[in-house]
């Protein structure tokens, strides 16, 4: 049997280095949505630090840690015309809150969304995944304009397509679409998202990741297998058995990003168990690469625990490739 090459990666967020957390608190205050007044050199220093943390742990495909993102939604929504930000609500089952974006007018991209951040990260490290979102942004927003989900998702998809093109111009090889809400979606949402991905990819020469987390992927199988993406990210912490069975039952001709250590607890996994689980997944999938990662972004952890978690991940799989 030919085994896939196992490559450790991260999902997206990384806890802000404590000094940078204090810096942001000072320049942005406690209430604002963020963005303005941040010194680029200071930001670049923080990004370099979290990329170094990832590299030292053994990660090979990186994220910039989303250090300016206050949550998955508002960072995208505040840069898109037509959104307004509203009150706080709980982010899935986490003790983490986000501001609800409200759609008040036709959504349009009039400026870069994450391109400037990507440029900073890319100057430090080439193997960077740029993270965007489409369906989840639509699903967790309050729509006061479109009145139907398809139009809303499609307009966001067009915006993400423009952004992705710009990212590729700046060097991006990997585009990741984060879609936790897809795991709570209805069947008709899946066909909307399938079309949306075609729109996002159009004319974009990059490897596409569709990443899900917070629960098992039962609701998106087998439909997700027809999505035009190269890698599907699944949460093997919350849904190990179920996701394994889904892969067995339906087979998969795409690469997998397996969220294999728990990004939401400071409890450290047993390395042997992680290794066995990765091997079990590796036996089922047959892509060239099997990406392994924490199941979620790491911002749920205190700073010092994030790198410890990544070390567990990387050391567990360290000898699989040999």
């Amino acid at each position: 049997m030919i085994m896939s090459r196992v490559i450790p990666t991260t999902v997206g967020s990384y806890p802000r280095p404590p000094w940078f957390r204090e810096y942001l608190r000072k320049v942005e205050g406690l209430q604002k949505e963020g963005g303005g007044g941040i010194d680029e050199a200071t930001y670049a220093k923080a990004v370099a630090e979290v990329i170094r943390e990832q590299r030292d742990a053994g990660v090979r495909v990186f994220t910039d840690g989303q250090l300016l993102w206050h949550d998955l939604l508002c960072h995208l929504a505040t840069k898109i015309d037509g959104f307004e930000m509203n009150g706080l609500v709980r982010y899935f089952d986490n003790n983490l809150y986000y501001r609800i974006p409200k759609v008040k007018a036709k959504l349009e991209r009039k400026r870069n969304i994450i391109v400037d951040e990507f440029r900073v990260a890319y100057s430090i490290e080439r193997e960077i995944k740029a993270v965007l979102s489409c369906f989840t942004l639509a699903a967790l927003s309050e729509d006061k304009f479109y009145g139907n989900k398809t139009d809303l998702v499609m307009d966001i998809a067009h915006i993400m397509n423009q952004e992705a093109k710009e990212l590729v111009k700046k060097g991006a090889k990997y585009i990741q679409i984060d879609e936790p809400s897809l795991l709570y979606a209805e069947k008709e949402d899946l066909s909307i998202m399938k079309d949306a991905i075609e729109v996002i990819r159009r004319g974009v020469d990059a490897k596409f990741f569709l990443v899900t987390y917070f629960r098992d992927a039962e609701r998106i199988f087998p439909e997700v297998l027809d999505f035009n993406v190269d890698v599907i990210g699944l949460d093997f912490v919350e849904g190990y058995e179920k996701n394994l069975n889904l892969l067995r039952e339906f087979g998969v001709d795409k690469e997998i990003q397996a969220g294999i250590v728990d990004g939401r607890t400071t409890k450290m996994e047993d390395k042997e168990q992680v290794r066995r689980r990765v091997e079990a997944i590796n036996e089922i999938v047959n892509g060239e690469t099997l990406y392994v990662s924490p199941n979620t972004g790491l911002e749920f952890l205190p700073y010092s625990k994030a790198s410890e978690k990544l070390k567990i991940l990387c050391r567990s799989v360290g000898d699989i490739n040999e």
């Binding site: 404590p18 949505e33 949550d71």
Partner: peptide
């Protein structure tokens, strides 16, 4: 207590373990 964890935006609390 290992350190602070975000609640939202720039608001954090020392999350116990």
């Amino acid at each position: 207590i290992y350190g602070e964890v975000r609640v939202w935006g720039n608001n954090y609390y020392p999350k116990p373990a």
